[in-house]
Design a protein around this nucleic acid. Sequence first.
DNA 1: ATGCCGGGCGAAGCCCGA
Length: 260
Amino acid sequence: MKIATFNVNSIKARLNNLVHWLEEAKPDIVCLQELKCVDEAFPHEAIEALGYNVAVHGQKTYNGVAILSKFPLEDITKGLPGDDSDEQARYVEAVVSTKDAVLRVASIYLPNGNPVDTEKYPYKLGWMDRLTAHTKELLQAEEMLVLAGDYNVIRTADDCYDLKAWADDALFKIETREKFYELVNLGLTDSFRACHTEPNRYSFWDYQRGSWQKDNGILIDHLLLSPQAADRLTACDIDKAPRGREKPSDHTPVWIELDV
DNA sequence: ATGCCGGGCGAAGCCCGA
């Protein structure tokens, strides 16, 4: 089973690019972020025509996440538990059932947090605390769990082209990375690092400054696995093709293969 | 090099992303 995460930076602007990639990569499950549309505006017809069931948690203009699945989706949770006043659509979770397996999947759009001297940074850190608390609950079920998305976290210096450019950024600040390690240290497996040791593999390149052409990227899209899912992990990689095409997102998909 | 793209909103510039 192939599971991917892709921050599309507007599902409306990215529909052709996304459909092209779905047809060629044929993922079974896809976690999307930054839809930038309300539920009613999601292009259900185009996606369902490719054989996907859809769970959407949208929002006007900003954020918005979805899960696409070739298998049925059940028990859909919209929004990250832990703060009823949080209106940002950054989390959707669902149970995927195949004929001989059940796994829980979440699509995550973790807050960016910049500028760090505004309320945006504590919101990010608080959101990460809520994600850790919720994950702790989910892990008690001892089931296959995949937490996939745009974490807006550069885990180590290996994951960025120029540390100087990011040292004090909300994506790399030590407080951010500590929260990320706290989450992973619940017992999750970081898929990409479980399969690769080489540095300078990226999932995001800024639209500006010729970042794509110069390969000035960062790796911030991650798939974290419960032990039960990690036991089935056979591959993880980054698919750079969509980033090089017409009207690309600034992110490109990262995918895993699970022996399920 | 904290705004050089690109998207949304809405009809022009401004907010936002990472």
